[in-house]
Design a protein around this nucleic acid. Structure first.
Length: 494
DNA sequence: TGAAATGTTGGGGCG
DNA sequence: ACGCCCCAACATTTC
């Protein structure tokens, strides 16, 4: 329904409705800067829109969102304002607020998920004639429209994609500080209480582990970046693959919620590494990982069906197996492969999993167990604090072999070798799989190969305290290759 | 951003 | 001294 503007009710008003989405920060936020660096006033709003499966945050993300919104509300409150909270279909909520207020401008940050784009389209279609609508990109370093190959098409392979990104004129850092003395518009309209959204788990409260590991919010994001620059960047290239070491940036959940902008990270990393060739090399390795984030988001933008459909259509007919029991064992970290179980339990406990281990657990699910990557994607969606539609679907399709620039189907990770290679002492395994605590280095990745004396000394009864491998590696590998082979030949024949 | 199978090479033990 | 064999180490190809 379109509202007819009543000129008489709108003197020189310059009032902005600011729609917060995945940009829960006040600094380095061009949209927020545009909304507040004016003579008018601003009404900050966040809408919890759970009407669509893929816009409903998972359990771990809800926990994060609660604390991030709480931090944002405090910041706004300290500046003399109020963050309005509403629940429901985002467009409906906007409609009702526009009716009840004297807003004449809508400002927001751009999103790349199908649902976010729908909302942006609806805002434009419904209101662009009556309202000034401003949209700014800051979730990514490069906009999808900017990066294309010689034929004007989106890249499907990462390396040339990233090369094209790096050859772009370096993006400008922009003003970091938020506006001072913001004039907040505080109409008497409904606003939910954050506590009433029930974003936090209650019975049972599984968030204990999350609390100890993360500090959601803009301040926490900047602290995490500083920690990484100081402790992690200098050996990023080698340490990022070792899950026992805190060698990665751990910025993904902050980035997902927009508590820090990738552009800010880009500049802080480059500034930190300036005048040090060795450090610059490490810095480029790290920025390349940000590049994968760009790649995934660009892919999702160009192929909005990525979360559902295989990027390579021939995978539509792949013979996935339904296997509830194995899926549950995988989810619970009881596959009998220590590195896999450690990863799944780290995920459950902290809402996060080391990236190297994500590849290993993913490979086991889709290759050894032949379980559809949708199941893995859904589990990650619910349990990861950094659950991101683009990264999640592109990542799972990469593991499954059906994605863009994906691992070829025959690339089956060997969970034993991966464990030995990237967790040589078993430190990571022992941290997350306490029942293997007493097992020595020799058998930490192959408890089933330990002799009875060793197992007894470690206090382990296989099949009771810790499971035997859910599937024999060699057999599982063979079965996966065979499955791909039959489907491949059928496809060729058909 | 693998792993396993297969091929090649070169050093050393040994008849 | 020489060829033969074994096999580790490395390289290539195949899955």
């Amino acid at each position: 329904m379109l509202r007819i503007r009543q000129i008489t009710l709108r003197p020189m008003a310059n009032t902005t409705l600011y729609l917060f989405r995945n940009d829960l920060r006040l600094r380095d936020n061009p949209a927020w800067a545009a909304a507040t660096n004016t003579t008018g006033s601003v009404l900050p709003l966040y809408v919890l829109d759970e009407d669509n499966t893929h816009s409903r945050p998972g359990g771990a993300t809800r926990w994060w969102l609660h604390h991030s919104l709480s931090a944002l509300a405090s910041e706004i409150s300290a500046a003399g304002g109020k963050l309005y909270l509403r629940q429901g279909d985002c467009v409906d909520v906007l409609e009702s607020i526009l009716q009840d207020t004297r807003v004449d401008r809508i400002v927001l940050s751009r999103g790349y998920e199908p649902r976010q784009r729908q909302v942006e389209q609806a805002i434009h279609d419904n209101w662009h004639e009556q309202y000034e609508i401003k949209r700014y990109g800051s979730y990514l370093l490069f906009e999808p429209e900017q990066i294309q190959n010689g034929q004007g098409l989106p890249y499907k392979v990462f390396t040339p994609f990233w090369k094209a990104c790096l050859s772009m004129p370096e993006p400008a850092p922009g003003k970091s500080s938020a506006a001072k003395d913001i004039d907040f518009y505080k109409p008497r309209i409904a606003s939910d209480k954050l506590e009433d959204w029930d974003l936090l788990p209650t019975r049972p409260d599984w968030a204990g582990g999350l609390k100890g590991h993360w500090q959601p919010g803009e301040a926490g994001a900047h602290e995490q970046l500083q920690r990484f620059l100081k402790d992690g960047l200098h050996s990023y290239d080698s340490d990022r693959d070792l899950p026992a070491i805190n060698g990665t940036s751990c910025l993904s959940p902050h980035l997902h919620h927009g508590e820090i902008s990738p552009l800010r990270i880009w500049f802080e990393v480059k500034k930190f590494a300036a005048n040090d060739a060795a450090l610059q090399k490490q810095a480029m390795s790290y920025l390349r990982e940000l590049g994968w984030r760009e790649f995934s988001n660009h892919l999702l933008f160009h192929w909005p069906e990525l979360p559902e459909q295989p990027f390579r259509p021939e995978f539509t007919d792949f013979p996935w197996q339904e296997d509830e029991q194995s899926l549950r064992a995988w989810q619970q970290g009881r596959t009998g492969y220590p590195i896999v179980d450690a990863g799944m339990r780290q995920l459950w406990h902290t809402g996060w999993m080391h990236n190297r281990v994500r590849m290993i657990v993913g490979s086991l699910l889709v290759k050894h167990l032949l379980i559809h990557w949708h199941h893995g994607e859904r589990w990650f969606w619910d349990t990861l604090v950094d659950a991101d539609q683009a990264n999640n679907s592109a990542g799972w399709q990469w593991v499954a072999g059906s994605g863009a620039d994906a691992a070829p189907y025959f690339r089956v990770f060997n969970p034993i070798l991966q464990g030995k290679k990237f967790d040589p002492d078993g430190e990571y395994v022992r941290r997350w799989v306490p029942e293997l605590q007493q097992l020595g280095k020799t058998h930490i990745h192959t408890p089933w190969e330990a002799d009875a004396t060793t197992l007894a000394a470690a206090g382990i009864t296989l099949g009771k305290d810790y499971p035997r491998p859910i599937v024999d590696h060699a057999a599982g590998r063979k079965r996966a290759l065979a499955a791909f082979e039959t489907f491949n030949s059928k496809r060729k024949a058909g």
